[in-house]
Write a protein that binds this DNA or RNA. Sequence first.
DNA 1: TGGGACCATATGGGCGTCAATGGGATTGGC
DNA 2: GCCAATCCCATTGACGCCCATATGGTCCCA
Lengths: 146, 146
Amino acid sequence: MNRFLSNATNRIDAKGRVSVPSAFRSVLSGGGVRELYCFQDFVFPAISVGGPELLDRFERQMAAEDPFSPAANEMSLLVHGGGVFVKLDPEGRLMVTDFIRDFTGISTDVMFVGRGDYFQLWEPQAFAKAQAAAREGRKSRGLRPE
Amino acid sequence: MNRFLSNATNRIDAKGRVSVPSAFRSVLSGGGVRELYCFQDFVFPAISVGGPELLDRFERQMAAEDPFSPAANEMSLLVHGGGVFVKLDPEGRLMVTDFIRDFTGISTDVMFVGRGDYFQLWEPQAFAKAQAAAREGRKSRGLRPE
DNA sequence: TGGGACCATATGGGCGTCAATGGGATTGGC
DNA sequence: GCCAATCCCATTGACGCCCATATGGTCCCA
């Protein structure tokens, strides 16, 4: 399996560390990724995490449009100003910094949510709410999975 | 037979495992499927299960629209964040995780319901109710089975 | 036609491995 | 020299793999 899928909740220990689920770690090492790029998601109260190529993709998108446009300017503010690089410890854990806590509301547990080519860090209850809202949205519009 | 038909109810054992009905397993192995994709159904309190091509279908649908659109983002939250890959043990059983229990209400028994090119996991009583409601709905609209 | 052997499926449990977690030790920066 | 981040090692608890048992159905043969 080569993409980030499903979700899992892990506890933050006394030192502020949390284990990245094994399944996610194998996707990362499978892609030869050793350093992670994290940024505050554009729509959800979650931190999005992926390999450095995630940042590359954003920069390409910005380059595609007028670099002085309000949209590109705004995006740079989020992507560059709201992004950090982090690396995992030998056991595959990452530090849950205030940068992450403040933006997501995470305090004791972290929910890892696969998003295909990247994954996200959520406060568990916030995710439940967002997912329920997404499901309601689809239902009310009468959309089916097929 | 190459699709999932009829239904069967099996018991969850002390370790939280349940046997997938033999008929369903032969459909899977007939299609060369070794890993299953499960997701929380969009309309029913049931887990839908199929081969990885189910996820591929969703991803193609998302790729067809703007990947940054709210609709695509919302769908990814359900399809990626609410989906899991599961594999069966050598005896053809799967683990009934909290992910499945919480969403379906399943506690001691699992009802397997064929849906053509995929199948679903239901809490037996919930299925009976949903089926009765579906039958009433058709009757009141004067529809015939064909 | 009835009995019995055989087979397949569902189910139960032992055991080893690995991931998640916790805590001590060491290093490096301020 | 102190605080904090990083590394290393220990524990435990869950999950996967294996083998054993039961139950029901089918087929064969007397």
